[in-house]
């Protein structure tokens, strides 16, 4: 088992955002988390690499307990890619430097090694020719692909995606999704929060439906989309279909 999340709880003030979430991820698997906004999906992802400290519960990456206070969290984070909804590329750095920063400062690669590696990852997302461009000179779709390259360059065991296409204009979503599809097919382990049902259906090994801080239902896409068991799931799927249109 690559990732195991056990009984995660997180509270902001009076509001309990995560109320006992457990699931696991095998190596090479892609799981998609869906659910209404404000349900704690982002909080869950951030608790996994402790960008947010969970109040209770445990997270294991392979055999290492990430949530243990004795663990060097920076070492762990270097092994877990994170792709943000609004990209969060470093605005003062070129695409190349965005990808190189972690390689040089976290992994300790020489500039030459880091450059080679970074260029390979930029090529992988189709942006080798934009290496010298700054984020503000790139389209949203290109920025998100650079941020995927930045995550990939670290050789992560797992990549967490937090609504990677939600901030994009509709015509730019496709280029990012196709990079993600390729990644999934190449055997990368991925945990993806998204409303892109087409992606979920075609790529996910399992769909996790979350609502109000708990997992309501999970299962293979076929089963969860065709014959959801829980009335909440049925209701959510009906609404999301109205919003985003039916399946192609």
């Amino acid at each position: 088992m690559l990732l195991r999340v056990e009984d995660l709880h997180k509270r902001y003030g009076k509001e309990e955002v995560l109320r006992g979430v457990s699931f696991s991820l095998e190596k090479g698997e892609t799981k998609v988390i869906i659910g209404p906004s404000g349900t704690g999906k982002s909080t869950l992802l951030r608790c996994i690499n402790r960008l947010t400290e969970p109040d209770r519960g445990r997270v294991f990456l392979e055999d290492v307990e990430i949530t243990s206070p004795r663990v060097n969290i920076n070492k762990i984070r270097a092994q877990i890619g994170f792709v943000f909804q609004d990209f969060n590329l470093f605005t003062h750095l070129t695409a190349l430097d965005n990808v190189r920063l972690g390689l040089m400062r976290v992994k300790g690669l020489s500039k030459k090694e880091a450059t080679e590696r970074a260029m390979r990852e930029l090529a992988r997302v189709g942006l080798a020719d934009k290496a010298k461009a700054y984020p503000a000179e790139l389209s949203g779709g290109q920025q998100q692909r650079v941020s995927i390259a930045r995550a990939l360059a670290m050789d992560p065991k797992l990549i967490l995606f937090d609504e990677p296409t939600s901030a994009l204009d509709p015509e730019l979503i496709g280029e990012v999704l196709s990079v993600m599809v390729e990644l999934a097919q190449s055997g990368m382990t991925m945990l993806v929060v998204t409303h892109e049902m087409g992606f979920a259906r075609s790529v996910a090994d399992e769909i996790i439906f979350m609502e109000k801080g708990v997992i309501v239902e999970q299962g293979p896409p076929e089963q969860l989309f065709k014959s959801p068991k829980h009335p909440r799931t049925v209701e959510f799927l009906r609404r999301i279909t109205e919003l985003y249109g039916g399946e192609k």
Partner: peptide, 17 residues
């Protein structure tokens, strides 16, 4: 923007880095 710090920490950079 706070996302800059977040993205840096997510890469494994220390706070000081």
């Amino acid at each position: 923007k706070s996302g800059q710090m977040l993205a840096a920490r997510a890469l494994g950079l220390t706070r000081l880095q």
